[in-house]
Design a protein around this nucleic acid. Structure first.
Lengths: 251, 251
DNA sequence: CGCAAGCATTCTGCATGCAGAATTTTGTTT
DNA sequence: AAACAAAATTCTGCATGCAGAATGCTTGCG
């Protein structure tokens, strides 16, 4: 039963252990699949752990875009055998983060400038739709929760805590999508958001860009609290448009 | 069981039955992954074959919504071992057609009325966007191809050839999406379309409903040929709205 | 000196085996 | 006879092994 170490028990990871490992049994977050575990207690599954971990490795760039994934090596690094790892790779391929090349395994998908621009355009339309729906569907309490997220994010902006800021930023977008009460919309949004996460992170550097993004968010939260669907919709769509301008240089 | 253990022996699969077994080594179409095989000749992969086959089994209802998938049984039926089958199941789970239940395998996902309605709403918006883009981006030749598909579909309508009609109908939607030249848009559209395929098929029965759908398509192709983006966008979105009225009874 | 053919070495794709959880069946008690 | 408990039987999750393809390296030839 043992013999495997890293993923199940963060013991020794002598083999150069690139860097610290995130907590294993508590995946940071799962963009593709909101934890909808209502009802069943859902014992932590190795599958989810591997998927989350590899997804993070892709998004963080530890697996370079365009590079091949070495099943043996990666499996050893994660402390799992190739079988569950391969299953996770197929899962991520379906999400669009990997590309399957028969006989040659999985490649980390590489997004061109056009890919990014197109994805942002779609994201903008989806967020616009979500904004309109959210204003109509959400309860005051739910809007209040988003406001809290927003305020926390602004605090992180003040202290220039970039990574936590970024995560909270993504969380706010996801939260508004959830307020639309449309699971399909949240689902496809999550997929595209995961695709762009890396680029948005590395591309959003620079004080004036950051300030611009913050301003966009101020407008968004104001529109949401005013329950002005059209205004929120326009704000979210415009936010995506400007995001393109902010990240285009990084591609 | 009617010994259909023929996933690997693409023998004389001649009959070309529409509902029977599709040709194995040439998946009819892969909603999740547009064949973007530029460059490489892409040797047929067992993975794709299994994914397509199981997806079709779900869409056709041969795997009942809500039911558990029996890996041993299904693998035997398809003539493959559990390993590649399990990989395919993870892939389909990521597409949203299956639900993974740790310790209990995969369940065929069941869509509620709200799920369907919501997905159609999103689909309507995406098709609306795609219509606008297509009118601006597509070449005359490409529009001509869609017209040909449309004419063939109308011929099938005249002869009341329901299944081929249905498939061509889906193909037309996918084709217009492709004309938008936005891969992300095509991709998410494909995912939602696959989800709804079963319900749309079983729900679109009845002559007056069929006639209504056909009329919608006439308007769509006319708008496309006129390159009237707003008109096409409105037509496609409206088509989705009416689709809900046509299929709601079947849920 | 460049290039291609042949060989050796991974690496992937798939099948099988096994441990533990889940489910069903059987036996016991009230 | 109903209800509970416990054994027996699947079934899933994962590891390992093996065949064949893919890749890299060496060597022979132009």
């Amino acid at each position: 039963m043992d013999g495997q170490a890293a993923l199940r028990e963060p013991q020794d990871n002598e083999s150069g252990g690139m860097d610290g490992q995130a907590a294993l049994r508590e995946p940071p977050d799962a963009p593709g699949a909101d934890r909808e575990g209502r009802g069943r207690i859902a014992r932590p599954s190795l599958h989810d752990a591997i998927v989350s971990r590899v997804r993070d490795m892709i998004i963080e760039g530890r697996l370079a875009p365009g590079s091949r994934i070495h099943e043996g090596r990666l499996g050893e690094e994660l402390g799992v055998s190739r079988t569950p790892l391969r299953e996770a790779l197929k899962y991520l391929a379906s999400e669009g983060l990997l590309e399957l090349s028969p006989g040659r395994g999985a490649l980390v998908r590489q997004f061109s400038a056009k890919d990014v621009k197109d994805a942002l355009a779609v994201l903008g339309h989806m967020e616009g739709l979500a904004g309109r729906l959210a204003c109509a569907q959400a309860s005051d309490a739910e809007i209040g929760e988003v406001r809290q997220l927003h305020d926390r994010m602004m605090e992180l902006y003040r202290t220039r805590d970039r990574l936590p800021y970024f995560k909270l930023n993504q969380a706010i977008h996801s939260a508004i999508l959830r307020l639309s009460k449309n699971d399909s919309l949240s689902y496809v949004h999550g997929i595209l958001q995961a695709r762009l996460r890396r680029i948005r992170y590395i591309g959003n550097e620079g004080p004036e860009k950051w300030a611009g993004a913050v301003a966009d968010h101020e407008e968004m939260i104001a529109a949401l609290e005013a329950r002005d669907g059209e205004r929120l919709s326009a704000a979210m769509a415009a936010h995506m448009d400007r995001t393109w301008d902010r990240v285009r240089h990084a591609i």
